[in-house]
């Protein structure tokens, strides 16, 4: 009985390694395929008026011409 358990443990280790490697590769592929997160709408707040902690923020894109 004990011998069988050991042999099972030994055989399951490579499988666990394979599973881990697969999971790692899937995670890597998912990260590579994921589109970049969108650029923040508010940007670096170079030209912001009003309190930084206001509950409402208006962002206006404009052209001077």
């Amino acid at each position: 009985m004990r011998t069988m358990r050991i042999s099972l443990a030994l055989t399951s280790r490579p499988r666990a390694r394979i599973n881990f490697a697969m999971a790692f590769l899937i995670l890597l592929a998912a990260t590579a395929c994921n589109p970049e997160s969108p650029l923040p709408l508010e940007g670096p707040d170079r030209h912001a008026l009003g309190p930084a902690d206001a509950s409402v923020t208006l962002v206006a894109f404009d052209d001077y011409q």
Binding site: E42, A54, T57, V59, A60, Y64, Q65
Partner: peptide, 30 residues
């Protein structure tokens, strides 16, 4: 109007960003 009625009262934050899409002088103005 937004600045006078909302931003100056501390209720709203107004962020200005550029979108110069009307030609080279739009870029230079920005």
């Amino acid at each position: 109007v937004v600045i006078e009625q909302y931003v100056d009262l501390g209720r709203v934050r107004f962020v200005s960003r550029h979108f110069p899409f009307l030609g080279p002088e739009s870029d230079r103005a920005a």
